[in-house]
Amino acid sequence: MKVLEVPSSLDYRGIEELMAKAVTVEPDKLLLDGRHTRFVDPAGMIGLLGVGRFLQSRGAERVRLQMDPASEVSGYLARMGFYQAASGIFEVDAPPERARGRSSDVLLEITPIAENQDVHALVEHVQERAGSILSRTLHYPPSAVVQFSVILSEVCQNILEHAGAPGWVAAQTYQWSRRLGRQVLVIAVGDLGRGFRGSLESEHAGRFGARWSDSTALEAAFIHGLTRFPDQGRGQGIQQIRKQVRRWGGVIAVRSGSARIADTSEWEEFPPLEDGLADFPGAWITILLPEADPEGGK
């Protein structure tokens, strides 16, 4: 059995390391060893599900996931609905039981997105608790709950409209003591679909010629709002999400294929465009929204 070590910090940065290992490992009997993982965020959880599904699709006979059952991470994964979502993807040794009912400290558990009604259910579900988290934890104005719902709706529709495969979404707030000294809301959405390059290829690859790549496809969609649909009304969702994230002083990064594009900020400096990452399928979107600046900023 081959062993892939899960990073100790399985967040939107740490997941990159695991994706890089996943694309090179020989699919066989595999163990993902997460016993030393001490932090996980929604991007890490969803990315981990994506890695498991990807290894399955490459023919891995069996993919086991081992976490430290006594660790806080394992209990947190249970509260976020990870083990439920991982059923059929990983074999998990004695996963902790998920508490009955909703966990009050969770904004949005891992939620599969496969059809239109999933987006409706998600927005209905998130309304109640988003209001209190956005206002009390992030100190956003009451109207933010509508804008937050719109972001979730549009970002999930990206899966349905462009991926051609189901995906997941999750969101949670964290105290970023060292990096920012404030709370940050992390929203993660991911799928193993055709990715931005695959989605745009038939309509737009020709005009880019030899320059056509994951990064040019991301630029086309993210910067210029291009989609594979001839309809002029398409492609607004991601543009409007970017605008709202900027207003809140946040960050949005989209990883697809071997590239990542981002609107960055002074407190989280993603490169605006990265190429040459591990060629991992699908699209992986991370949105970071910081607590409003007590000095009267965002």
Binding site: V123, E124, S149, Q157, L160
Partner: peptide
């Protein structure tokens, strides 16, 4: 569309 939905979201809706 559906009596369960109360928001005007998604393109098919």
């Amino acid at each position: 569309v559906a009596s369960l939905y109360s928001h005007l979201i998604t393109r098919p809706t």
